[in-house]
Simulated scan of single mutants.
Amino acid sequence: MIRFESVTKCYPDGTLAVDDLSFEVGTGELVTLVGPSGCGKTTTMMMVNRLLDPTHGRIFVDGADISGADPVTLRRRIGYVIQQTGLFPHRTVLDNTATVPVLSGWKKARARARAAELLDLVGLDPAVYGPRYPEQLSGGQRQRVGVARALAADPPVLLMDEPFGAVDPVVRDRLQKEFLRLQAELRKTVLLVTHDIEEAVRLGDRIAVYGAGRIEQYDTPASVLGAPASPYVAEFVGTDRALKQLSVTGIDHTDLERPPFARLDEPAGRAAARMRADGARWAVVLDADGALHGWVGRDEMSGAPGTVADQARRMEAWVPVTGTLKQAFSEMLKHDAGWIAVLDGPRFLGVLTPTKLHEALRRTIGSGGRGVPRERAEVDSVPTE
């Protein structure tokens, strides 16, 4: 979808911002450009919508050389989100969001309907927030409007320059999660500029790590963390890259252990006797379909009337199998648990222990991070029914 061929940008004062840059971004791919200030990452992005033109080389968008495109027409086909959002203060949120469709010739009613649809998509009720003005919104809400406005004309390409950098860490975390949800649904081709390696790892399908005007490594987050291409990249991603790698390492079925279990409708006394014979002090509680309903202790059930269901306790420490080792580790620490349940929907698959977490991370680092699935699922609460 986006291709750079030997692109160089040199300013009139002799400053070399980008030096002989060549790389490709696939359709539906989210690529993060990360590096220190002044390394050329924003210049790279601004050349895609011709806010800047390269000194040498060519840039292609959807197979077409953009040097021959009308800049205004090109920009209306490319969404653009900046740190400060750039909303018009004298226009309502709904009209701000409808800006590009109106400029592209849409009828006002159609543009406003599209704007309302996009506001709802980014989590802002158009009936509530549409009539408001930017000054009446929080920083996080303004950033959501900026994203909605960039998506309003349904552009195939989205450029984002430090889009979440102007908000506090809590809001930033929520915005990142919301954007990942949107990207999973919309599959836009995205170039996102950031100086934060944590954000680059969390959001990117691939990462371009910049040195001075050039890309030092272009690869998946797992590969950048697991096998830095140079001492510069290793230093940039940090000495704690093994910990960062937890966030891009998926849970493998082979890492799971199967603990003792008791059936939901099993008589409590019989379950306790079986656990005692097996030397088990506790067991997970499953229904007939293998769904997790909690856990029970052997001593609490000994001599207890009724079924296991009457004694079962809620299981708080768990993650979906589509989650990451970072999620598993975080939940383990949060609940001070010696293990964490792994679920496929409501179905119980097994448990992940600290030993298995450590083994999985060592294996990932040893493989250089290649071929490791990268999932982005969220942790919810355990289903009780």
Rank of each mutant, 00 (worst) to 15 (best):
L203I: 12
P131A: 04
R258I: 08
D65A: 04
L286G: 01
R374T: 12
G165E: 03
A280Q: 11
L175K: 07
R298Q: 14
P131S: 03
I2S: 01
R374H: 09
R58Q: 13
L16K: 14
A153W: 10
R114F: 08
F23A: 08
S230I: 13
F329C: 03
D252N: 12
L361Q: 15
Y129V: 08
R50F: 05
F88E: 00
R114I: 03
K188E: 07
V157E: 05
V81C: 07
Y11G: 06
S230L: 11
G68H: 09
F4S: 01
D287Q: 02
F164P: 10
G350C: 09
L264W: 05
V171E: 03
V18T: 11
T322Q: 08
D278C: 05
P373E: 06
M46D: 09
D287G: 02
L264N: 00
I197K: 02
E359V: 09
G371K: 04
N96F: 04
D299H: 09
L286Q: 00
M160E: 12
T92H: 07
A271W: 02
N96S: 10
L352E: 10
R241S: 11
V25Q: 01
A234E: 07
R172E: 07
I2Q: 07
E378G: 05
V224L: 03
H56D: 08
D19F: 03
P267M: 04
T43Q: 01
S302D: 14
L159G: 06
S302E: 15
L33T: 00
E198Q: 14
L21V: 12
G297K: 04
G28I: 11
A150E: 12
R77V: 02
Q141P: 03
A116M: 02
A111R: 00
E385D: 10
Q83Y: 05
T92R: 13
S37Q: 07
V193R: 01
L74F: 05
Q143N: 04
D205H: 14
S247N: 11
D173Q: 15
L124P: 02
Q141L: 11
M160D: 10
A153V: 11
H56K: 05
K326C: 00
Q183G: 08
G294R: 05
E359G: 02
